[in-house]
């Protein structure tokens, strides 16, 4: 039961390819695989944290004001992640820039808080947060890998000595790569899920 909380978010309900949530950072920061993974992990930290806190507070927060309360909790966690990354992972923080504070409005975070953490126990919520976060990271990593290999001819910075197709690290390439990957996802998993 608990394991399912974790694995559901990985492929079956993958945030990027299936639920199509958090697409702004997914398209914007995936020019290299490292950036994609870093963005995914930052989101995972916020998601797991907010799920745990909201699950712990679910009996304290009155139903009517739950959304503002969730937003406050999420924004606090995002600010903490933002400050910590700026201090200790400064170069990465410069690249991800605007998209770190924008985790606040990533629909995955508020979505999981509302549909899962507000109804389930702390441990299950932690697993749900981690599963969805890692699923999101996986989606970003795959998209970023495709874009880095095609667009720069490198993978994680290591040269593959293939000719770079520059359009894939430019904005249009982000849309094209995601469109084709999504079609591939549909082709692979249609009917099975």
């Amino acid at each position: 039961m608990n394991i399912k909380n974790f694995t559901d978010g990985l492929i079956k309900n993958n945030a990027v390819f299936k639920q199509m949530l958090g697409l702004c950072p997914a398209l914007a920061v995936t020019t290299t695989m490292l950036n994609g993974i870093a963005m995914g992990l930052a989101t995972t930290a916020v998601l797991a944290g907010s799920n745990v806190v909201i699950s712990a507070l679910k009996s304290v927060i009155p139903n009517k004001v739950r959304i503002p309360a969730y937003i406050v909790v999420i924004a606090t966690l995002v600010t903490m992640v933002d400050l910590l990354m700026n201090a200790y992972l400064h170069d990465l923080h410069k690249v991800l820039g605007l998209f770190i504070p924008l985790i606040v409005v990533n629909c995955i975070v508020l979505g999981r808080a509302e549909s899962f953490a507000s109804k389930n126990g702390i441990f299950a919520s932690l697993l749900d947060g981690l599963g969805n976060g890692i699923g999101f990271t996986l989606g970003l990593a795959i998209l970023a890998a495709v874009r880095e290999i095609l667009g720069s001819g490198t993978i994680l910075g290591v040269s593959l000595s293939t000719p770079p197709i520059i359009v894939f690290i430019l904005p249009p390439g982000a849309f094209l790569a995601l469109g084709f990957l999504m079609a591939g996802y549909n082709r692979l998993f249609k009917g099975e899920i």
């Binding site: 999504m182 079609a183 549909n186």
Partner: peptide, 13 residues
């Protein structure tokens, strides 16, 4: 496989 979102993304590209 391209119906819906995938073709929309290619169009956006």
């Amino acid at each position: 496989s391209f119906k819906g979102a995938p073709v929309a993304f290619v169009t956006a590209g």
